[in-house]
C-alpha cells in the first residue's frame, strides 16, 4: 500500500527532477568554475575549476551584501504592514454580510488579476510627476510628493507591492476565517464581548497559520524582488543602481556582463539567505513547515 501511495508522487517527482533538480545541479557545477581571458581579451576564454573561489568572492562582495541589507530592511517594514492590511481587510469582509462580501471580494481581487506588465504600465503613469494625477492630488493636502525621488522610492515600491499583493493575502486569510465555525464566537458574544474584541482575541489567533504562510511567501518574494525596482530604475537611476537588490545584481552579472559562473554562486548564496530567513521566521512563530 505504501508503495502504491508513493506511486502517486512519481509523475511529479520525475518532472521535478528533470526540470528543477537537473538545472540546479548544472548551476551548482557552474558556480565552481570561472572563465578567464588573456592578452587583449579577444582570444577566447579558458574555463577553469576554481573550487569555492566564486563563493569567497561573493561573501566579500560589498555591493551584493548592501543590496541584501537594503532589501531585508524593506522587508522588515513592508511585510508586517501589508500583512496587517490584509488581515484588516479580511476581518472587514468577514464582518459584512455574505452577499456583500462576495461582491467586494471579487473587486478586491482585481489587482491580483492584473499582470505585472500591465500594472507597471499603469503605475508609471500614476506616479509620473509630470502627467500623473497623484502628485497634484497630494499637493491638495500640501504634500509635495515626488514618487520617483530617492527619498520616496521605498514608499513607492511598497505601495506597488501592497496594491498587487493585498488581494491575494486577504483571500487566504478570509478563507481561513470562513472555515471557523461561528459557534466559537457565540459564547463570547453571550459573555458580552464586543465585535472588535472578538476580532482581535479570537479571530486573529485562529488564522495565525494562514498568516505564517502568507508571511513566508512574502519574505521569499520580497528578498527576490526584481521587477518593481526595475520599473523605478529609469526614473531614479541615481538611487536604484543596477545592483539595488540582490536579484538585480545577479541579473546584471549574468545577462549584462556574461559572468554566469559568478552569478550562479551569488544565486546560491541568496537562496541560502532566503532559506535561513524563512526557517528563522518559522522557528519564531513556532511552526515547522513540514508535517
Amino acid at each position: 500500500m505504501a508503495l502504491k501511495g508513493a506511486s502517486f508522487t512519481v509523475p511529479f517527482f520525475l518532472g521535478f527532477a528533470l526540470f528543477t533538480v537537473t538545472p540546479m545541479v548544472m548551476a551548482l557545477k557552474q558556480s565552481l568554475y570561472k572563465a578567464q581571458s588573456s592578452g587583449l581579451g579577444f582570444g577566447g576564454k579558458t574555463i577553469q575549476f576554481v573550487g569555492l573561489d566564486n563563493f569567497v568572492q561573493g561573501l566579500q562582495d560589498i555591493r551584493f551584501w548592501s543590496a541584501m541589507g537594503r532589501v531585508a530592511l524593506f522587508a522588515a517594514i513592508a511585510i508586517p504592514l501589508i500583512q496587517l492590511a490584509s488581515v484588516g481587510l479580511a476581518l472587514l469582509l468577514d464582518a459584512a454580510s455574505q452577499r456583500l462580501a462576495d461582491r467586494f471580494r471579487l473587486l478586491l481581487l482585481v489587482p491580483f488579476m492584473i499582470p505585472g506588465i500591465v500594472a507597471i504600465l499603469i503605475w508609471i503613469y500614476l506616479y509620473s510627476p509630470v502627467v500623473g494625477p497623484l502628485t497634484p492630488f497630494f499637493r491638495l493636502f500640501g504634500i509635495e510628493a515626488d514618487f520617483y525621488s530617492g527619498s520616496m522610492i521605498w514608499i513607492s515600491i511598497g505601495n506597488l507591492m501592497a496594491w498587487s499583493s493585498i488581494g491575494f493575502n486577504m483571500l487566504i486569510v478570509y478563507a481561513a476565517l470562513r472555515a471557523v465555525p461561528p459557534e466559537i464566537y457565540d459564547s463570547a458574544r453571550i459573555d458580552g464581548a464586543s465585535e472588535w474584541r472578538i476580532a482581535w482575541s479570537i479571530k486573529v489567533p485562529l488564522v495565525r497559520r494562514s498568516l505564517v504562510l502568507t508571511s513566508v511567501l512574502s519574505i521569499i518574494g520580497t528578498l527576490q524582488i526584481f521587477s518593481d525596482p526595475m520599473l523605478f530604475r529609469s526614473m531614479t537611476p541615481e538611487t536604484v543602481t543596477r545592483d539595488f537588490t540582490p536579484i538585480m545584481a545577479i541579473y546584471d552579472w549574468a545577462f549584462s556582463q556574461g559572468e554566469f559562473n559568478y552569478a550562479a554562486a551569488l544565486s546560491i548564496i541568496l537562496a541560502l539567505v532566503v532559506g535561513t530567513a524563512s526557517a528563522l521566521f518559522y522557528r519564531l512563530t513556532n511552526k515547522a513547515p513540514t508535517s
Binding site: G41, F42, T236, P237, S256, Q257
Partner: peptide
C-alpha cells in the same frame, strides 16, 4: 575595450549620480 558592457553599466550608475 573588451569589458565595455560592464563598464557601460557602471558608467550609467555613475552618470545618474552626476545628473543628480
Amino acid at each position: 575595450g573588451p569589458n565595455y558592457t560592464g563598464v557601460f553599466a557602471e558608467l550609467q550608475d555613475q552618470w545618474a549620480q552626476v545628473a543628480a
